[in-house]
Computed example of a mutant assay.
Amino acid sequence: MNRVDVVYSVILKKGKVLMVKNKKYDNWTLPGGGVEKGETLEQAAQREVWEETGLNVKVGKLLTVNEAFRQKENNHVLFFTFLAEAFDGEVVVQDKGGILDAEWKDLSFANEAVPYYEGGIEGLLETSLSYNFQGVQA
């Protein structure tokens, strides 16, 4: 299996979380994507947020690490989710080929769309770093 690192960012504003709708999978996720060769996790998180939402962010603490085997793609994926704070920009999709939309969503919506976090988004914010194996995925 190929090792793939993916970063996500939790960006909050007035009790909502910024989410993006991915074209490839037709689903809502946190802003994020693959770490490029020679890029740190923090750099990848900043780049992915900008590409998908038009926002510049300061990446904060690491909230969780999740792991999955994606057999269909022959990938062993590690997902790193960070807390991030927007300091500049407007929400505008830059990567129109990969992202259909970017919107501030209620936490209940986010928790249903991305059920990989034990305790939901709120739980990530209240606890120390956690690890969750997401299982073997087809």
Rank of each mutant, 00 (worst) to 15 (best):
residue 89 G to E: 06
residue 80 F to V: 06
residue 18 L to G: 11
residue 50 W to Q: 05
residue 16 K to Y: 00
residue 73 E to H: 13
residue 126 E to F: 00
residue 35 V to H: 09
residue 91 V to G: 01
residue 133 F to L: 00
residue 35 V to D: 12
residue 91 V to Y: 02
residue 36 E to P: 02
residue 126 E to N: 09
residue 117 Y to A: 10
residue 125 L to M: 10
residue 19 M to H: 02
residue 79 F to Q: 07
residue 49 V to Q: 13
residue 108 S to G: 08
residue 56 N to M: 02
residue 45 A to I: 00
residue 129 L to G: 14
residue 119 G to Q: 03
residue 134 Q to N: 14
residue 115 P to H: 12
residue 60 G to A: 12
residue 122 E to N: 13
residue 102 A to N: 10
residue 68 A to V: 07
residue 117 Y to E: 05
residue 19 M to Y: 04
residue 93 V to F: 01
residue 69 F to Q: 10
residue 15 G to C: 02
residue 122 E to Q: 13
residue 86 A to V: 07
residue 63 L to K: 09
residue 63 L to Y: 06
residue 28 W to R: 04
residue 14 K to P: 00
residue 58 K to S: 13
residue 41 L to M: 11
residue 48 E to L: 12
residue 62 L to H: 05
residue 108 S to W: 03
residue 84 A to G: 11
residue 82 F to M: 08
residue 13 K to A: 09
residue 51 E to R: 11
residue 1 M to G: 15
residue 35 V to C: 11
residue 63 L to P: 01
residue 55 L to D: 06
residue 42 E to Y: 14
residue 22 N to L: 13
residue 58 K to L: 07
residue 31 P to I: 10
residue 136 V to M: 12
residue 24 K to E: 15
residue 72 K to W: 06
residue 106 D to Y: 08
residue 30 L to R: 08
residue 41 L to C: 14
residue 85 E to S: 07
residue 117 Y to V: 04
residue 77 V to K: 01
residue 9 S to W: 01
residue 93 V to W: 03
residue 32 G to K: 08
residue 82 F to C: 02
residue 92 V to R: 10
residue 16 K to W: 03
residue 94 Q to D: 08
residue 4 V to I: 02
residue 110 A to V: 11
residue 14 K to L: 04
residue 42 E to G: 07
residue 12 L to W: 08
residue 111 N to V: 00
residue 27 N to P: 03
residue 78 L to V: 07
residue 14 K to Q: 12
residue 108 S to V: 11
residue 100 L to S: 11
residue 132 N to Y: 10
residue 24 K to I: 15
residue 56 N to K: 11
residue 30 L to Y: 00
residue 62 L to N: 09
residue 92 V to C: 05
residue 26 D to R: 05
residue 126 E to D: 08
residue 129 L to K: 15
residue 40 T to N: 12
residue 4 V to P: 00
residue 90 E to F: 06
residue 73 E to L: 06
residue 88 D to Q: 05
residue 63 L to E: 03
residue 99 I to P: 01
residue 72 K to N: 10
residue 131 Y to V: 01
residue 25 Y to W: 12
residue 73 E to T: 05
residue 123 G to F: 02
residue 71 Q to S: 14
residue 115 P to Y: 10
residue 10 V to M: 00
residue 122 E to C: 03
residue 118 E to Y: 02
residue 75 N to Y: 12
residue 75 N to S: 07
residue 66 N to C: 15
residue 88 D to H: 05
residue 9 S to I: 12
residue 27 N to R: 14
residue 43 Q to V: 06
residue 38 G to C: 06
